[in-house]
Amino acid sequence: MEWRNLPTALLFIAPASIGYAVFLLWPTLRGIYLSFTDTTAFNAGELVGLENYQRMFADGVFLDSFRVTLYYVLLNIGLQTVLALVVAVLMHRLTQSLVIRGLLLTPYLVSNVVAAMLFLMLLDYQLGFVNAVIDTLGLDRLMFFGSQDLVIPTIAFVNVWRHLGYTALLIFAGLQTIPDNLYEAGRMDGASELTMFRRLTLPLLRPYLGLVLIVTVIGSFQVFDTVSVATQGGPANASNVIQYYIYEVAFSRSYDFGYASAMSVALLVVLAAVSILQFRLTRANTNDMA
């Protein structure tokens, strides 16, 4: 390392680190501090110790919103990862077309809010296109956003639709690191596509899948826009996911920033734990290719 390069290095690092400090580090520390206070939207508040955390574990709505969020993450990530893997492998093995790759990514270019509005219209019970089709087929209309049983699967599906292409591309990038000669060797040995997928693709893709999972799971836990636009947590709290509940507490229910911060910290802890666990389980930092 040449020390005379240090000033230049710092100059290059500065934009990112200032951004990191201002928009990530400081809010996080500040949020953690606020979680130990009774700060409201209008008042600075004082330290109250663990009161907000005690309240959290006694708050049925909070516990329920955690359950709802977990259910959402399971559905969202489960469906999304399987489909994205299939799409990525198809792209890898069948076509290298840039046009198709571009098309796959289009839903991701639509903002979450617009996607939610779009599906709100498409899936409307009375006036939606999808229910018109269901009706024509002689089946019973479905309350996609209006029924407590369907609302979370519906929101999960909307977000799978939006993120599928993006996730598939991430996996596809991982697939491209697998050398072609391995598949050639596989074919020489008479392995079918399915066997090669199981014996070659999956094991060699593990570190990439691991990282993709960590990133998508974190994003999935933080689902907010779709809920805010399409259901506002309803019907009867059936889609009251954790981020939406935090927002409600801070900005419309009780303006209670202290309690909202405590819940945010709880989410942070859970996400950190889940990420570390995933990292360990998928051994995302090691590669079998070496």
Binding site: L24, N112, T216, F224
Partner: peptide
Amino acid sequence: MRKSLKTALAG
């Protein structure tokens, strides 16, 4: 899901 991350940050 980067969008939702941003929302969270904005929050």
